[in-house]
Design a protein around this nucleic acid. Sequence first.
DNA 1: CGACTTCTTGACCCACATCAACCGACGTGG
DNA 2: CCACGTCGGTTGATGTGGGTCAAGAAGTCG
Lengths: 248, 248
Amino acid sequence: MNPLDSARWPGSDPRTQDPCLGCAGKRFGICHPLDASALDEISHDSDRHCLPAKSVLFREGDAAARAFSVLEGTVKLSRLLPDGRQQVVGFRFRGDLVGYTAGPTYPFDAELLTPGQFCRIERGRLDTLLRRYPLMERRVLDLCLGELAATQEHLVTLARRSAESRVAAFLLGLSDAHRRRGLAQPELPMPMTRGDIGDFLGLTLETVSRTFTAFKRSGWIAEPGGQKLRILDMGMLQSLAAGEMADI
Amino acid sequence: MNPLDSARWPGSDPRTQDPCLGCAGKRFGICHPLDASALDEISHDSDRHCLPAKSVLFREGDAAARAFSVLEGTVKLSRLLPDGRQQVVGFRFRGDLVGYTAGPTYPFDAELLTPGQFCRIERGRLDTLLRRYPLMERRVLDLCLGELAATQEHLVTLARRSAESRVAAFLLGLSDAHRRRGLAQPELPMPMTRGDIGDFLGLTLETVSRTFTAFKRSGWIAEPGGQKLRILDMGMLQSLAAGEMADI
DNA sequence: CGACTTCTTGACCCACATCAACCGACGTGG
DNA sequence: CCACGTCGGTTGATGTGGGTCAAGAAGTCG
């Protein structure tokens, strides 16, 4: 399981869907398995809204009153540590469910890295819907299981891999997450900063920067600018991510 | 959320239950929210069995054909890395559900550290039961959400904390996990080896050993033998786990 | 008792953190 | 228009926490 991508798409190909039409009217995200009448009902319970980059969906510790289905954009989930630094728990993309948690409060901040669109639903309404539509609850369970597998995968990365292996794994994960959603573009958008990546991978931003330049010098990746990234040697990144040592 | 303890017990106190009676006949683990008739039905679908220490419930990559509800014992979940080392993803105790995963195969090994008892159920039967009993599916979702929160907590530990902070957090987590289940004993059982702990915390067994001896010399913990551990200065461990530096 | 596993302790070293300087892009206000 | 601040990124110099290697000690079990 890809540590960057917690989504699972049983039974249909997400690439054939138009995510921008959102919850109401389209089977997307958690609404994926619903039929027409259920979709009609849910459209009364949720609302869609757009937000600019850097806006905050919620903060760690806020009452977990709403869940968000990501229709478009990239979300950074992070946790503030006692010493003031942050740990990025994950990134979320379209189709992901954000903010449906076990406890009464959100366990992390959710912040937009790009402009985004969301389908927002009250926690209580969602719970009611889950009770009424077992297929939807099943879907949430699947999303949760997928997220769990992704987080465990990420755990292994943090615990055991070298800096270059982590960065390689991150790039591959990002690529995979985007390939499974939008069309496979040669240039994949990478809205996160070196600092974000470092906080995700348990490295400093300097180490991330050094590793990126090393990868670029070796001709394995390129950054054409505009927050885009192009992977030139997928195989090399894969063997790096797998732990094989490369003297850059 | 305690990174060692993914369990959540909504609505009732687990300490009043007799876990050894297991799934059939008692509301325990995933059967927790079921009524009598449902329990009767489930008893035909599951079977109970006992296993000695070091036995393997399943291996990474095996077809995920069965799920296990832990009635007694400690389970180590680990993943074999390409370089031959292992990453311990977590430990599971009584009341936890083991082996119910998103994918068609198990994503990690499950191995017993102590003799254990389990309620075993076929994956397909469990899926059927989940469809029939929404309360049970809801319970599985809650367990999954709890496990997710615990894994994310562990993620932070691995990414950011120092060796002594990790060990302190591990000890506190172990203590908490046991306090929430069995009676709070002054000596808590610790069946895992230094190597297991190191593989859980992303440290070498030598570093774990050194940290344990440092803690013992400082009088914060004691190991009376027999795989038992006694925490002498909980407050000190807490401030260590929180990241405050202590020159041991 | 001997075989085996686990634990401990020491010596050494390296990957990465830390500290610091600098660059270019961008926005803002005088 | 330029001066200035800010932010993200790059690069270098230096230090250190914990990995690695190695050798014994201490259980533990047949």
